[in-house]
Design a protein around this nucleic acid. Sequence first.
DNA 1: TCTAACCTTAACGTTAACGGCAAGGATGTG
DNA 2: CACATCCTTGCCGTTAACGTTAAGGTTAGA
Lengths: 165, 165
Amino acid sequence: MTHLDAPPTTEPDLLRIHEVSAETGLTTRTIRYYEELGLLKPAARSEGSYRLFDPDDLERLRFIKGLRDDAGFSLAEIGQLLEDDLARVRNRSRFRSTTDATERRAILEDAMGRVDRQVATLQTKIDRLEAMIAEAHARRAHLENHLAEIDAGAEPAPHAHESRR
Amino acid sequence: MTHLDAPPTTEPDLLRIHEVSAETGLTTRTIRYYEELGLLKPAARSEGSYRLFDPDDLERLRFIKGLRDDAGFSLAEIGQLLEDDLARVRNRSRFRSTTDATERRAILEDAMGRVDRQVATLQTKIDRLEAMIAEAHARRAHLENHLAEIDAGAEPAPHAHESRR
DNA sequence: TCTAACCTTAACGTTAACGGCAAGGATGTG
DNA sequence: CACATCCTTGCCGTTAACGTTAAGGTTAGA
């Protein structure tokens, strides 16, 4: 077992691809594939061209996974959503490179607009899902109605099949 | 006691695949593919083995499309959700074939359970999406915080965030 | 009846999203 | 320094979800 801590010589907490895989639950192949698609930037490379990932990259990968698994977005759609995120990261350096309050304001407001768009996209999906739930509830109510009729103990009206929806 | 309806010798409003396609926005190939996967039953066939669809089939296809596009479920997952729906349709004939109130109750309660499971599945997805929205709101709040600092005057507090690179 | 427009099955092609090698270089540990 | 592990870049294989002919049967209208 190694007893010396990693001395903070230069950059700390940079992970190699296998550790990132264990951390995110994505396979190394998938991570490389996402980079190939442009969803991720290499973060950094070691002397021997090993990929090195920082915490921001992990967050980004988890975000991608969430959009993919939980939201069911395609990688193309995720690419759109991440274009926003990517611009946000680029804005960080721009942000630090200026002290002009007006420009900083503009950058921040731009970033906020991007986040708002992400939220709107997700909200649209939620709305549709809720509409489907509402339909399901309608079906359920219909069944409950039948049940009540039976409990009332009689043959109900002819019920000429479904009417309009 | 109930007098019989007019004999439905020939069922009306049965659509052919192209009309169904126009009606649902799915291609004919897709509709046949869904049947091939078992997501849909042929409804009926003409003398020359043309597929004929009734209104229930249209509803089912729209439901499938909603699960696919809006909810982002795979066709395999949709198959699971529809197993419930399919059983529901089968139950209809069983339902009509009995007059035993107890059995009718059982069938209806079973159907309600299936609907409830569909709702739960959809709700799970909504919950995850809302969690992602919450994260986005957190990012937004962070940005707003920065903005407030700028508006309050130049250099803000040290800000022990992860601003170190 | 004849034909244009629709339908059938069968089979091969395509794209997205990876999985799985293979050949060779990089790293760290005894 | 030797060796076991990692990593790299290809490149081919696979599955899902269709698209696209091809070859031929069916329907409805003039």
